[in-house]
Amino acid sequence: MSKIRILMAKPGLDGHDRGVKVMSRALRDAGFEVIYTGLRQTPEAIVATAIQEDVDAIGLSILSGAHATVFPRVLELLKEKGASDISVFGGGVIPEDDIPALYKAGVTRIFTPGTPTDDAVQFINDNIKPKSA
């Protein structure tokens, strides 16, 4: 039986992992397989992990203000490694004004503080399919 696999990662230096843990739990309860890698991950490590785990999507939680560099870097590395079929979404403290640029760079969705977890589940069910051969 096919299952959607999602890597939940926390790049950068801040240690606020409540959000990513709540989201991981919500995605688990929605029936997805969530791979959680812990704090302070580099974009290179995130992409290497995503490829080994053959995930369908990567969710990045960023509260440090580094979103404008981290998201594009992850997308760039995925492309470099031939894995741009992995969807990248994210959440955290990200100003509304910065979101259009992230979408333009290829991020599929940004969830800002206060988003109900159901919205993220809905988004994944509507947009992400388990990969096949």
């Binding site: 995605l27 969530v34 290497a48």
Partner: peptide, 22 residues
């Protein structure tokens, strides 16, 4: 473990192996 109720799972063993991810 996979949840017997939802079929979902949190796979977190890698947290302890992060130094080898690259």
């Amino acid at each position: 473990p996979t949840s017997p109720f939802t079929g979902g799972a949190i796979l977190g063993d890698r947290i302890r192996m992060a130094t080898h991810s690259l």
